[in-house]
Design a protein around this nucleic acid. Structure first.
Length: 572
RNA sequence: CGGGGCGUAGCGCAGCCCGGUAGCGCGCCUGCUUUGGGAGCAGGAUGUCGGAGGUUCAAAUCCUCUCGCCCCGACCA
């Protein structure tokens, strides 16, 4: 393509609306433009990247035996009421009524629609396994869209759904998708890690997230520095500490802590470390209020707590509830003498002796509180977030924490949806069985954003070859007929060799073209002008390394074909 | 939802405190010169100052309401 035929509105200045690298560069390089918060138009260059990623996804999904279809964006409330997600999904589900006042929503995901199709059309185990996928626009009315395509409200997603006759088959389907995802993100040129994940709103039993490691990521990953263990922080397990503090028990002593409510305030006031203090947090879980004991330097993992209590989410109790339950204002809750509610504790509490703890009395804490003697705990379990330095729960090593961008997630759903929607098939005994499902998503735009987060410099984007909008950026830096003719010949020859060329044929000065080319980030730049042609050469620059070399125009096609093959071996 | 910030030309911004002809840089258009790392000169076009209401002789500027956008947070006692 020629620049003169393509809308590529590059920006010299950083737009005020963007701070994140990928968001800024996508706007500056003319890939996207905002229409509303979290809603974007993909400009020609941006769309080419999206299509490249989609194509890689298609090839790998097809290779894994999945079949492509396309479901509607709008779906009727009835399907969502069957699974109760009409109520459950909350405000993220964008709802509307049609002209007959019937309820509809824009699909944030498609388990209901695909399960409905499956139960209508598939009867026999002989038809299984099946895996359907689509690449389609999704809508989720995010609480806070941000960072451009990283967290949009409208976004392109590849979603896939597998159906198997039994658990064994479902695990095979799951593993195929896991392997396909590994290939997809590798081909996209990303440095990523598959981590164990919580299953959240989608539900199910087993899940992995594919995380692109990047400081700008919204998720935290915990991984072993020596072993293979890696998990989302929400999920990362913490082993019970081995050692029990052997100190002898000292007498329980109330101590005045006026206006000292937080861990920081209390520990500073009493000249102790947070490790010697136990926080007592009151949570609302459905109708129940529970107390959770956690060491002062630890954080409660609310996902683990919610899972333990078998509720969808837990929320800290409001000050009125705290006052009512503990008889004291916020900041002084403790387990000693706490009645009528369950007291749960993190493993770490079990081995602690002579701790500082709230006294359920205004401006008062206890020193030297001890388990069993002064208070009882109903259950000890893993209730905290993993921290850097914790031992890996499986395999060798200790945990390291890193930020990551979740670009894909795979779930083994089991019968969660097939049960609610009665999606059954006949097995080889003629017996009806619920289909065992899996679901698998990839954020296409987010993958593009993540690629930029990992591949850029101060001048602009450095696209991994397989997802670059163009392979080669051809820059004419003279306006002479000689240069134009030579460029036209190269342009035709490269295109004939299957190399995608963007020819900057604008009449702008060389500097403008060089800067735009670096910003747009095609892997290779060819500079052609009167000076070089006089010596019988053109210049080739590798965007990533910045290395420039001179080459005869006649050798260029062969040379670039070789470079291209090296840059994308997996495409062969 | 809470907190903070911002809406002035296509983009980046100044002007607002202290009311009095709406500005700067880049970009855009025309012409000439230039042309290998964001050209020079000359001329030119472009604004419901986010919107509504109010105060005032007079509002981008002051007041009230409202819409949009960005960032942080969303309860860790």
């Amino acid at each position: 393509m020629k620049s003169s035929q393509l809308l590529i509105p590059t920006l010299r200045d950083d737009p005020g609306e963007a701070e994140t690298v990928s968001h800024r560069l996508m706007l500056r390089a003319g890939l996207i433009r905002k229409v509303a918060a979290g809603i974007y138009t993909y400009l020609p260059l941006g769309l080419r990247v999206i299509r490249k990623i989609e194509q890689i996804i298609r090839e790998e999904m097809n290779r894994a035996g999945a079949q492509e279809l396309l479901m509607p964006i709008a779906s009727p409330a009835e399907l969502w009421k069957e699974t109760a997600r009409w109520d459950f999904y909350g405000k993220e589900l964008l709802r509307f009524k049609d002209r007959h006042e019937r309820d509809f929503c824009l699909g944030p995901t498609h388990e209901e629609v695909i399960t409905d199709l499956f139960r209508r059309e598939v009867r026999s185990y002989r038809q299984l396994p099946l895996n359907f996928y689509q690449i389609q626009t999704k809508f989720r009315d995010e609480i806070r869209p941000r960072f451009g395509l990283m967290r949009g409200r409208e976004f392109i997603m590849k979603d896939a759904y597998s159906f198997d006759v039994d658990e064994t088959g479902a695990k095979v389907s799951y593993q195929k998708m896991y392997d396909a995802y590994t290939r997809i993100f590798t081909r996209c040129g990303l440095t990523f890690r598959a981590v164990e994940a919580d299953t959240g709103l989608i539900g199910g039993d087993v899940s992995h997230e594919f995380m692109v490691l990047a400081d700008r990521g919204e998720a935290t990953v915990a991984y072993s520095d020596q072993g293979s263990y890696a998990a989302n922080l929400e999920r990362a397990e913490v082993l019970p500490p081995p050692a029990v503090d052997a100190a002898s028990l000292l007498p329980l002593t109330p101590i005045s802590t006026p206006q000292r409510r937080t861990v920081d305030e209390v520990t500073a006031f009493l000249q102790i470390t947070p490790r010697q203090l136990v926080k007592t947090l009151l949570y609302r879980a459905g109708e129940e209020t529970v107390a959770v004991l956690i060491r002062g330097d630890h954080e409660v993992n609310e996902v683990k707590l919610a899972r333990l209590l078998k509720v969808t989410d837990v929320v800290l109790a409001d000050p009125e509830t705290v006052q009512h339950v503990t008889g004291a204002p916020l900041g002084f809750a403790g387990p000693v003498g706490l009645r009528h509610i369950r007291i749960l504790a993190d493993h770490a509490i079990k081995g602690m002796r002579n701790v500082v703890i709230g006294a359920n009395k205004s401006d008062t804490h206890y020193q030297n509180a001890n388990l069993d003697r002064d208070f009882v705990v109903e259950l000890f379990t893993d209730l905290r977030n993993a921290q850097a330095g914790d031992p890996s729960p499986r395999g060798p090593g200790v945990l390291t924490l890193a930020k990551g961008i979740e670009v894909g997630q795979v779930f083994l759903l089991g019968t969660k949806y097939s049960h609610k929607m009665n999606a059954t098939i006949l097995d080889d005994q003629g017996k009806e069985r619920l289909a065992i499902m899996g679901c698998y998503g990839i954020g296409v735009g987010r993958t593009a954003a993540a690629a930029i987060e990992q591949n850029h410099d101060e001048k602009g984007i450095i696209w991994p070859f397989p997802i670059a909008p163009f392979h080669v950026h051809l820059l004419t830096v003279s306006q002479s007929d000689k240069t134009t003719e030579a460029a036209a010949r190269l342009y035709t020859d490269l295109a004939a060799a299957g190399i995608e060329v963007l020819w900057d044929d604008r009449a702008d000065r060389a500097g403008v073209k060089f800067n735009d080319a670096d910003l747009i980030g095609a892997p290779f730049q060819i500079v052609i002008g009167d000076k070089g042609l006089a010596d019988g050469v053109v210049e080739i620059k590798i965007r990533r390394s910045g290395i420039k070399s001179r080459i005869a125009p006649g050798d260029l096609v062969t040379h670039l074909s070789k470079l291209s093959t090296e840059a994308d071996p997996s495409a062969a």
